[in-house]
Every structure is written in structure tokens, then in C-alpha cells.
Design a protein around this nucleic acid. Sequence first.
DNA 1: CCGCGTTGTCGAAGCGCTTCGACAATGTCC
DNA 2: GGACATTGTCGAAGCGCTTCGACAACGCGG
Lengths: 336, 336
Amino acid sequence: MVTISDVAKVAGVSISTVSYALSGKRTIAASTRERIEAAIRELDYEPHAGARMLAGATTNILALSAPIHTDGHLPTHMRFVTAVVDTARKHDYDVLLLATDDDVSGIRRVAASSLVDGVVAMGVKAHDERVDVVRRAGLPAAFIGIPGDGDGLACVDLDFERAGRLAVTTLAEAGHRAIGIVGHPPTYLERGTGFVQRFNAGLEAEAAVRGIRLDVVSPTLARGAAEQAFDELLVASPEMTAVIFHCNEPVVESVLRRIRERGVDVPGDLSLFAACASYDTSHLVIPLSCIPLPLDQMCRIAVESALRQVRGGDALGVELITPVTQNRGSVAPPRI
Amino acid sequence: MVTISDVAKVAGVSISTVSYALSGKRTIAASTRERIEAAIRELDYEPHAGARMLAGATTNILALSAPIHTDGHLPTHMRFVTAVVDTARKHDYDVLLLATDDDVSGIRRVAASSLVDGVVAMGVKAHDERVDVVRRAGLPAAFIGIPGDGDGLACVDLDFERAGRLAVTTLAEAGHRAIGIVGHPPTYLERGTGFVQRFNAGLEAEAAVRGIRLDVVSPTLARGAAEQAFDELLVASPEMTAVIFHCNEPVVESVLRRIRERGVDVPGDLSLFAACASYDTSHLVIPLSCIPLPLDQMCRIAVESALRQVRGGDALGVELITPVTQNRGSVAPPRI
DNA sequence: CCGCGTTGTCGAAGCGCTTCGACAATGTCC
DNA sequence: GGACATTGTCGAAGCGCTTCGACAACGCGG
């Protein structure tokens, strides 16, 4: 293998000069640097990852803690993963994927063995063990989602509370007074995913202020559950004129098909709104106005926050992304 | 951080003794080993990954080259990834995820920097650049899929040719003489995914032997394309009594819904068969008899093959998994 | 009881890199 | 023109580990 001393020999300088030329930590004469760079290109030199780690430098590896839940939505999960990998690569970082059940032990292991410079954690829960682990290990970390006890930790998320309020506001301002909600499976809440709670809190707060009736269903992932839940909504609240989706794409699709089957006109009979959509709502059977989940942005911020800490910067605390709406024509004033 | 010399001190032995106790490469007296293990537990020692790599040992990291295609099916992709991660962890390996566009440069980089012990490559194409890279780098590698020029390389895949024949055989033995095929999008073939070619070859060979009529459609991923393709099949081959699916789950679901809409009885009017299904066919609107894609098995074999090479073993060449059928009642003799 | 092979342990070298301190070779200022 | 900073380069130490060769200590057969 090509080592730094090969490069030094070819460039006619010492090893340390090559190292400094590479890291930029000391000034190197332009002419010297050029010779070194030429030698590197000529030899196709790549620093030995282990040697770098050992000498106390960075590993240029980020761990991605991405626990998979049986009730989770795999495509969304995958989008998060690839977004993290893409961003990391832009900063010359590789990603070590921690995706087995026991996410805590994985973090502990890579931290103890100095394998990674930092960790990005997704699928964050209200009470997340990983918070303790990274805190104890003093490991640079960024959470995609807001853990309950994450004081001083870098967290990024859509402002779900505000998204809840924005969803209600959007429909309320169109004139709707009774809104149905199709939410995530009940297991999400049981598992302690904070974003569902925050979104619901936002919904309820805004609905209370505006005196709007809210009816919530939380279909499981079983076949037919989504359609059935929608039917229940119709029965429970005959005056309902709008529905907010805060659920995964397959559930939305099922309900949209049911809506078509029943001959309900959108937005004439019923306005629809997809909140925090991790998917493209413009390609659905019925395109939906929505608040997009800014997945790429979240991942980018998380990775960059972790890397800032790696470079010695402070964790910037909680960063909440302001939700925005996108109009796809599925919301209109209710028929009088 | 806790180092091996801390452990040695506590256990009252030398550094090398600890190292040998850990690696098992020399015999160590049972009593000594116990003292060392106690010290390791007491200090919560974890070897420094970089030091290990540098000293010429293994890195205990496997790269997973998992290029993402725009026409690919994300859930299937994710299942492969997690299956690889799970298997790797069982062998005390971590997985570095190479998922950006340029998969070749990623492999080259991790190989040149000795970051990984080996690589597992999925999404293998008939002409796959990665073959050259790993061969040139002398890197232990396993391919999930069969590259065209992969002589001497470790490859694992379902025997798609045989699966094609088995699918036709299954329907032919039930008495069907005209079979429709709903295939993967045409972009799969254009991209050079070998498994589609091999499956089709198997289909055609068996159909030719048995004198069976085959009509193939390859719907794109556009909305409505699947339904439309099925309708075309119906028009093109009125005598068709069975359909083989060799496509992703969403396409199957769309067609199944169309079948319901048209009031076609399964298996009375039409027999259905899912070939190489990466999803659970028993939870579909109409449960389908199928040849499952043995995804976990493929990933397990690939990881273990790569690790065998890491330990100095030979690449075992191409391993084709024999397809098996599962009966879910969607195949019956055609009405006379 | 001597020589021999085994077994268990140790010391030291070295993996490729970063970084510290040293030090020529300059330039700068009174 | 001499004192002093600045700039560019170098040698060497050391990061934590594996592994080689050495070598006591021991049991064994002749």
C-alpha cells in the first residue's frame, strides 16, 4: 500500500510536511504543496484510516443510529438514511449504520472503540436511552427528533406543535368548523414518539382557540383499518367537512381510495390536508395540499450539527423548523 | 480511555498476554484468561478500533454498497440493508453504508484507506464496475446478484432462471396454456439488472418446452400504468387464464385492485402467481401463491461469504438458491 | 538425571499517521 | 547592520494494538 512516506519521498520532503500539507494546520509554501499534491495524485495515495484514528485525529466516520420498528414506514426510514449518508459524504464523512434492535449497545460500542467521531440518532423517543449514552460518552451527537430530557443536546425537528396549529388554521380559515384527523397507529404513541404528542397538542390548542370540533381516529396498519377508520369518522361526525392526515402514505392512499369509492368529491364535499407528509402528495390519486416534512433539511442540519461538535463547537440546542404549507387544491371552503 | 495496558496491569500480566487471550491465537492458561476477562469486565475495556486496524488486524467493518435507483423499490432495498446489518452484527461486524450515487468511488476509497475488511454489493448489474474494483483491490467481496464477468467472485442469488421455469411449471401443471406476465419496469432491463433477463429466459424456455403462450407487459411506475398494462394483457390474450407477477408490491396491489374492480374471480376466472416476491403475499387483498425471494438467506450467505474470504478462505463462486413455491390458494385449474 | 519438546508468558518492534519542538532561512525594523 | 519575528521544513515521539522471537518452567522418556 502507498503510505505517506512514499509520498514524501516522491515529493522530496519529509513526512510531516506532507501531513501538514494535507491537513492545512501549518502553512506550506505553494510550490511545495504543489509537488506534494502531484505526488499524491501520481501514487494514488489514500491515508490509512486506522493510522489516522490512532494518531488521535478524526475517523471521518459518523454513526447513524436508525432503529427499525415493526410499525414504522420503511420508505420514510430509508429516505432519512440516504439523506444522512448524502450529507455526510458531502463533508467527506462515511456512515456506519447501526440498525439492529439494540441501538444503545451499538452506540456504546462504537463510542468506546473510538470508531466514530459522532452519532446521528433518528427515531427519537420521548424517553430515549441514547441521550444518556452520548452524554456519558461525551460523544458529539445530533438527534433527529426531540428527546424528553435532551437539555443542551443538539436536536432538530419539524416544529410539530406549530404544524398541528398550522394545519387547523389552514382549514379553519377556509371556513371549516368540524375536522377529522387520521393519525398514526396507536403503537406510535405507546412507544413514546414525541412528535405525535406535539402535533396533537398543536391541533388541540388551535382547535380550542377557534372553537373547532376535532374527531381523531388512529388506524392500525392492518388491512382495511384505514378505510374502516375513515368510515367511523364519517359516522361519528356527520358535520365534518375536512380531514387532516397525519399518518403514513399507505394509510392516506387507502383512505383516498375509499373516498373515491364513496363518490365523495374533493374538495367540494370534503377538504383534505396532509400534515407532515414524508412523501410526495402531488402524485397521489387525489393530489393533497400539505405541510411537507422537510426530511432532507432535517438530516442536513443534524449531520452538520454533529460535525460542528466534532470540530469542537457547541451543540446548538433544539432547532425547530417552521412548517410551511403547499397548495395542491385539495382544500376549499365547505359547501353551505 | 481504557487501554490494553490498563487491562494488563489489573490482571497482572503483560500486554501481549492480554492480546493473545483476546484473539485466542496462542494458548493461555485458564486461570490467566479468567483474570484477564475479569479485568476487562471491571474496566469496561473496548479495543481501540484504529489501533487494531493499524496493527494489521481486521477492522471488523464491512462496507455495504447499496446504490439507490430512482425506479427501485425502497422497502425492498431497506429489507436487504437491514438483513445485511443484522447478519454482520451476529459476526461482530459493523456495516459502513455506501449509498451515494457513485458507488464505485466509495468502494475504492474504503479499500484504499483499509477502512473495511470486505464489501457486500447489492443491486448488481450485468456489467458491474464494482467487479473490477474489488478484483483490482484484492478486497474480499460478495455480490448479491450475478454480475456478468464475475468469474471466481462470490455471488449469491435466487436461481431466477429456475424460478421462471418453476412459475410456468406451477401454472402449466394446473392446466393453464396461456399465461400473462406482469414484469418489472422497462428501465430495469435497460439498466442491465441481470435477474430480470435470467427470469425471463427461464419463463420462455419452459413455455417453449410446454407449448404455452406467454404475453408480457412491463408497466412503468407511473400512476395507472399497472392497471392499464393488465387491461392490455386482457385484450391481447383473451384466452389467458393465469398471470405471473414479477414486479414490485405496489404494482401487484394495483393490478389486484383492478382485478377486483372488474369482478374477476381468483382463482376461478384467473389464477395468479407472484414470482420472486420480496414482500408478504399473504397480506395482499388477494393472497397470492408465490415463489418468495429468500432475501434474508441471500444476505446471510453474502455476508458469511465475504467474512470467509476475510479469514483467508476462497471465494466460493456463484451460489444459486433453489426457488420454492408457497401455496396461498390463488392458483387453480382453469375453467373449461 | 540429562536432554528434549510443550506450554504459557513476556519484551519489543512496528503498523502509518499527527503533532510538538527545533531550527534554518528569510524578511523587518530601528 | 544587528536584534527579532515570521515562515517553511524537519526529526522524533507516541497513539494502542498485534505478533514475532525468546525463554522460563514443566513433564517426559531413556
